[in-house]
Design a protein around this nucleic acid. Structure first.
Length: 602
RNA sequence: CGGGGCGUAGCUCAGCUUGGCUAGAGCGUCUGGUUUGGGACCAGAAGGUCGCAGGUUCGAAUCCUGUCGCCCCGACCA
């Protein structure tokens, strides 16, 4: 491609609304055009990058046995009602809906379990056809509450989604592991450093799941990990060992203490320290957070308790409530109580809630990691400006006790699997794999005939990679002060030739044209910067765009040499005749490194 | 949806507080010339319903009301 014909539109300044590197650089280099909030036009350069990402993703999915299909983006409401998810997605309002001319309502694909399950039910009839895995790479819509960070979180995006069907848990597990391996291979070929962590399965549902994360300071997820044991989990899911609180001089029986105008735990402890309980700390508090949980059928008030120095994990709490509610569930929405609701539930102003007399809630849950039934705590007295000192849950609580895992694990907590300690880092979620079980197939009556001559619901798995998000994550991981430094496997072009002689220098022009022809003949994706611009402008542009290799035909041409330079690396002066060979070799070597990394996945 | 902020040229922004002359700058674009190894220089040009709609006023980018859009902080997810 000749640069004069490719409509390169780089910006010298950062767009005002771009905060993170990928957004900033993709906009500045002309990859992206913002069409609306969370809506982007992918320019010609981005199209090439995306095509390469998609090709690698598809290749690895096919290698793992997947069959590529294309599913409709408009999905009938009826299908979603069969699975029972219409209500969930309407409640969270993540699904965009449209009406056709006859008034029928459709959802715009946020995912495709229903569509693919319906397909499998029709085309897979016998256990002899199992397992099977269908996948696609297609546009998805999610009515994001707040699109942000350029390509990172948008309303319309491209996702690879795969769905597998099985007749046994063992078969599902085999495919799950194959997908896990395929994902690792995919990310290595893409040049991305990604790692898998345990995750909550969220709205998709199911038993097990792992997320694939790209480490990045701007990542929206928090990961807890221990490099030594290999444990890693999203904070939503992470478990760990919390150090016990130190003992303190608690009264034998609970004492009601006047604690004027101090509701926050640290304030309460500060007050008590000055008023007769010198050794109390926040860890001696019994923190009570009040929520309202909604399911399709019921609305229930909930009190959640955790040790005073720790926080409630709302994802864990949601799951715990769902378990308690049984067939009244699942919980579709969980929100903290508004102050007037707190007053109703505790007969006190917010800040003085506790599990003793006076608390009126549907459910009371206690964190089993940080709380003990027979240890003394300082609890709210359900009376404004009063606390109970020396409160013991087993003895003094006036509510039915439910114990579960509710605490948010944080840096410094113990590794659940070994002696080590957990660390924390931020990550961008680029992929997710789930074991779904029979959630969809049972609900939708998607059945196959087994060797026992009976009909069984498919056991399912589902797997996603955010193809367009991967592009943003790649830029986050590969950029410097001058611009993007694409891995060669996904760069829009592999080489750019920059003629840098005086205009009309026939020798320079001839050398550049010759290299251009020869590289094209070798199948290299090559650009020729034939624009009438100063060399400095060209260098800046290609550094920003991120072309991995640059060949400069300049003053050396007179003596028969050109310069070959990797992006961010050092120049090599080589004879004109060797430039094509050297660039080709370097490109192939770098691709080989990525392939070797993929082959090393076990 | 709650809280904060912003809408002026393709991009980045001044001007608004305290209403008043032809609405400005830099970058980018176009023309001509000089330049040509890390975002050149000179001369000239094009480009604006000041987000939109009302209102106040002799007069509104500026003040008021409404509305739409966008950005940032919190709850969703690839």
């Amino acid at each position: 491609m000749r640069a004069s014909r490719m409509h390169l539109c780089t910006l010298r300044e950062d767009p005002a609304d771009a905060e993170i590197a990928s957004h900033r650089l993709l906009m500045r280099a002309g990859y992206l055009h913002k069409s609306g909030a969370g809506l982007y036009l992918y320019g010609p350069l981005l199209q090439r990058v995306l095509a390469k990402v998609k090709a690698i993703v598809s290749d690895e999915m096919a290698r793992a046995g997947g069959l590529e299909v294309t599913m409709p983006i408009m999905q009938e409401q009826g299908l979603w009602e069969k699975s029972g998810r219409w209500a969930t997605y309407q409640a969270s309002r993540t699904m965009l809906t449209v009406k056709d001319r006859s008034g029928q309502t459709f959802g715009l694909a946020p995912t495709a379990e229903e569509v693919v399950t319906d397909y499998a039910a029709n085309v897979v009839t016998s256990y002899k056809q199992l397992p099977v895995c269908f996948f696609q790479q297609h546009t998805k819509f999610r009515d994001e509450i707040r699109p942000r960070f350029g390509l990172m979180r948008v309303k319309e995006f491209i996702m690879m989604d795969a769905y597998s069907f099985h007749d046994s848990d063992e078969s599902l597990d085999q495919t799950y592991q194959a997908m896990r391996k395929a994902y690792h291979r995919t990310f290595r070929r893409l040049g991305l450093e990604a790692f898998a962590v345990e995750a909550d399965s969220g709205a998709i549902g199911g038993s097990g799941s792992h997320e694939f994360m790209v480490a990045a300071a701007v990542g929206e997820d928090t990961i807890l990990f221990n490099a030594e044991s290999g444990y890693g989990a999203n904070v939503e899911r992470a478990v760990g060992r919390v150090a016990p609180a130190p003992a303190w001089a608690a009264p034998a029986a609970a004492v009601r203490v006047h604690t004027p105008a101090v509701g926050a735990i640290t304030d309460v402890m500060g007050f008590l320290q000055k008023n007769g309980y010198a050794d109390v700390q926040p860890a001696h508090g019994l923190k009570c957070v009040l929520f309202v949980a909604k399911t399709e059928k019921v609305e229930v008030t909930v009190a959640a308790f955790v040790r005073g120095d720790r926080d409630i994990n709302e994802v864990k709490l949601t799951n715990a409530i769902t378990r308690l509610l049984g067939d009244q569930g699942p919980v579709l929405n969980l929100r903290p109580m508004h102050p007037p609701e707190v007053v109703t539930a505790t007969t006190a102003q917010p800040g003085f809630a506790g599990p003793g007399a006076g608390l009126t809630v549907g459910l009371a849950l206690f964190d089993k990691n940080t709380l003990d039934a027979d240890t003394p705590y300082i609890a709210g007295a359900n009376a404004t400006d009063h606390h109970l000192v020396g409160f013991r849950i087993a003895r003094d609580a006036a509510v039915k006790l439910h114990w579960d895992d509710l605490v948010t694990i944080r840096e410094g907590d113990g590794d659940p699997q070994g002696p080590g300690v957990l660390s924390e880092k931020r990550g961008i979620e680029v992929g997710h794999i789930f074991k779904l079980g029979t959630k969809y197939s049972a609900a939708m009556q998607a059945l196959y005939l087994g060797p026992d001559q009976k009909r069984h619901p498919f056991i399912m798995g589902c797997y996603g990679i955010g193809s367009s998000r991967v592009v943003a994550a790649a830029v986050e991981q590969h950029h410097d002060a001058d611009g993007i430094t694409w891995p060669v496997s996904i760069a829009p072009y592999q080489v750019v030739i920059v003629p840098a002689g005086k205009p009309g220098d026939a020798a320079v022009e001839e050398a550049a044209e010759g290299l251009y022809r020869d590289l094209q003949a070798k199948g290299i994706e090559v650009l020729l910067d034939d624009r009438d611009a100063k060399p400095g402008v060209k260098f800046k542009d290609w550094d920003l765009v991120g072309i991995p290799y640059r060949i400069v035909c300049g003053r050396g041409v007179a003596t028969g040499t050109v310069e070959v330079k990797p992006r961010g690396g050092t120049n090599a002066d080589v004879p004109l005749a060797e430039a094509v060979g050297l660039a080709t070799t370097w490109i192939q070597e770098r691709l080989a490194v990525l392939h070797a990394a993929a082959e090393a996945v076990r």
